[in-house]
C-alpha cells in the first residue's frame, strides 16, 4: 500500500474520519428512510398502488441491486462506527460521576442524543428481522401472487396486510419507529455538524428541522400499520 493510501485510511479511522463517515452514511440513510416511508404511504391509496410501486422498484434490476448493496454497506459502516464510538466513550470516561447533569442551553444533550446507541442497536436488530420477514419472506412460490398489467408479481400488499393485522407487528413496528424518530432527532443535525455543513446561525434552523424530520418520518411510517390493524375491525 502506498504511503498516501495508508495515510488516507488512517485519516478515515481518526476521530474526525469516523465522524465524517458516520455523518455521510447517516445522511444517506435519512434519504433512504424518507423514500421508504413515501413508498409505504402508497398502500393507503388502495388497490394495486403499493404492488405497482414495489414492481416499479424491482424493474430497476441491476441498478436496484447496486443500490441495495450500497445501502447495506452504509448500514454496516454506520452501525460499526457507532458501536466503536460507544465503546471508546465508555473507556474514555473511566469512573462514574456520582452526580452529573447537563448545564442546559446551549447544550443539545437530550434523551435522544444520549440514547443513540440504544435506538441504533434496536434499529439494527429490527432491520435484520424486517428483512427476514418481509424482503426475504414468503413470495410467489408460497402463493403471494398478484397480477399487474397482465404480469404475475409478488403480492407484497397481501403480505403487508396480513402481517400488520397481528397486534405484535401493528404495535411493535410503531414502537421501533418511535426510536427511529429519536435517532433522527439528534442524528440529522449531528450528521450536518459532523460534515461541517452547519454554523451557529444555521444550527438554529437545522436542529429543530431534525426534530421535525423525526416526527414527519415517524408519523409517515406509523400511520400504515395502525390503519391496517384497525381497519380489520370495521
Amino acid at each position: 500500500m502506498s504511503s498516501r493510501t495508508k495515510h488516507f485510511f488512517q485519516a478515515l479511522a481518526s476521530p474526525v474520519g469516523r465522524k465524517v463517515l458516520t455523518g455521510l452514511t447517516g445522511l444517506g440513510l435519512v434519504l433512504f428512510v424518507i423514500v421508504h416511508m413515501l413508498g409505504n404511504l402508497t398502500y393507503l391509496q388502495g388497490g394495486d398502488a403499493y404492488n405497482l410501486y414495489a414492481h416499479k422498484l424491482a424493474s430497476y434490476g441491476v441498478l436496484l441491486y447496486i443500490l441495495e448493496v450500497g445501502l447495506a454497506a452504509f448500514f454496516a459502516l454506520h452501525a460499526c462506527i457507532g458501536i466503536s464510538i460507544y465503546l471508546r466513550k465508555r473507556r474514555a470516561r473511566g469512573g462514574h460521576y456520582a452526580r452529573y447533569k447537563t448545564a442546559g442551553k446551549p447544550s443539545l444533550q437530550t434523551f435522544a442524543s444520549r440514547t443513540m446507541i440504544v435506538s441504533g442497536i434496536v434499529l439494527l436488530v429490527f432491520l435484520v428481522l424486517h428483512l427476514i420477514h418481509f424482503k426475504f419472506g414468503p413470495g410467489m412460490a408460497e402463493g403471494y401472487v398478484a397480477t399487474i398489467e397482465g404480469e404475475q408479481i409478488r403480492d407484497l400488499r397481501r403480505l403487508m396486510t396480513e402481517q400488520f393485522r397481528s397486534p405484535l407487528y401493528a404495535f411493535g413496528y410503531p414502537a421501533v419507529i418511535i426510536l427511529l424518530g429519536f435517532h433522527l432527532r439528534h442524528g440529522f443535525w449531528s450528521a450536518l455538524q459532523s460534515l461541517s455543513l452547519t454554523s451557529p446561525r444555521l444550527s438554529s434552523i437545522l436542529y429543530p428541522a431534525g426534530a421535525l424530520l423525526g416526527i414527519v418520518v415517524g408519523a409517515g411510517f406509523i400511520i400504515v400499520p395502525l390503519w391496517i390493524y384497525f381497519s380489520q375491525f370495521s
Binding site: P15, V16, K19, S107, S113, H186, S190
Partner: peptide, 21 residues
C-alpha cells in the same frame, strides 16, 4: 487530532455539552 486520539479521549457525538460548560 492524532495526539488527541492517542491520549484516549472519546469521540465527539455533537452533544454540545462542552460549549455549555
Amino acid at each position: 487530532v492524532r495526539q488527541m486520539s492517542e491520549e484516549g479521549f472519546g469521540d465527539c457525538s455533537n452533544h454540545t455539552e462542552c460549549e455549555a460548560v
